[in-house]
């Protein structure tokens, strides 16, 4: 048989499948696409689920506690005989610990990123980046142990009046925990800055430091800001470090040396007890959770928007 006839013969036998078989094949493709789509849709379902679960219990909670009392009250004593439901002490505890974490993580993370992006040679980067990844992958309960039984005792030797449970120790450890996030996202942003900008700066006689701080940093500014905001959101939502090492005393204070309680630690505290469903106490954790969700979700949206903007600049 000549090659030309065989070429003509094989596709015709293949494609001349019966119409019903082709229809079945097309229906199968259609079904697959829908099944895949439904799996993707589950993520929207997750967000909706979070919102519904939190909203239902929060509304039930707000029917008994006026929203102004909840948002602006300065006393949080839901487990007392005369309960008060002012969430501000929990919010303040959360902000305090997160602020300490950011004070540690921002400068250190940014400097690490500058070193990795602008100074280090590829071989050093290949060694250091996986180690930073490990730092990011350590379970938070381990960091909690570290904060309570190592960092706080060490700090107590230096800082007079530091309580066994406090905001300072867990704040510092939380800073170490989010440092890799700040560093790797900032480094990505700096790597996105075109080489030409650096070369122009070097050509004008600038040193590496001048180039890093005055050319690369401003050019990567929105990306780096996005990294900072995402890190703040992580700090606010972090649970185990503060549940273990910060104490369980909701307190309206900026003093980092005394025990406090964060929103997340409160949810853990209530979850550990056997709280019956439908009680006001059970609903408080959803109301606090709603506040936490809205806060972090807002920060995440801002961060994503900034990242998108920065991508456009150099696209």
């Amino acid at each position: 048989m000549s090659p030309s006839t065989s070429l003509r013969a094989s596709p015709s036998t293949r494609l001349r499948a019966s119409p019903s078989a082709r229809l079945r094949a097309r229906r199968f493709e259609f079904l697959i696409e829908w099944a895949l789509f439904l799996c993707a849709l589950l993520s929207i379902g997750t967000t909706a689920g979070i919102l519904v679960v939190l909203a239902v219990e929060t509304f039930a909670f707000l029917r008994e506690v006026p929203i102004t009392d909840f948002l602006f009250g300065t006393e949080w004593t839901p487990l007392f005989a005369t309960p008060r439901f002012g969430v501000l002490p929990l919010v303040m505890g959360t902000v305090l610990v997160s602020a300490i974490a950011m004070v540690v993580a921002l400068p250190a993370g940014l400097l690490s990123a500058i070193y990795l992006s602008e100074y280090a040679n590829p071989r050093v980067r290949r060694v250091i980046k996986p180690v930073l990844e490990i730092l990011a992958g350590v379970p938070t309960v381990v960091y909690g142990y570290f904060a309570l039984l190592f960092v706080t005792p060490v700090l107590q030797r230096v800082v007079p009046g530091l309580a066994g449970f406090n905001a300072l120790g867990p704040g510092i450890v939380m800073g170490i925990m989010i440092l890799p996030l700040v560093s790797s996202l900032s480094e990505d942003a700096m790597q996105g800055v075109p080489r030409g900008l650096r070369e122009g700066s070097f050509a004008l006689g600038a040193t590496r430091m001048q180039t890093s701080l005055r050319v690369v940093l401003p050019a990567a500014f929105s990306g780096i800001t996005a990294a900072f905001i995402l890190a703040a959101s992580r700090a606010i939502g972090e649970t185990m470090i503060v549940a273990i090492a910060a104490g369980q005393q909701p307190r309206l204070t900026w003093n980092p040396l005394v025990p406090i309680e964060t929103m997340t630690a409160y949810i853990v505290q209530v979850s550990l007890g056997d709280t019956p469903q439908g009680t006001l106490e059970y609903r408080t954790i959803f109301a606090v959770g709603m506040l936490l969700f809205l806060g972090t979700f807002g920060l995440n949206l801002v961060s994503a928007w900034l990242r998108g903007r920065y991508r456009e600049e150099y696209a």
Binding site: T46, V53, L54, V56, R234, T239, I267, L292, T296
Partner: peptide, 17 residues
């Protein structure tokens, strides 16, 4: 992308409810 940054304890509340 947003879900990946939701605090894990919120998933706990979702699981509970």
């Amino acid at each position: 992308t947003n879900l990946a940054a939701v605090p894990s304890i919120i998933y706990g509340l979702l699981g509970l409810g």
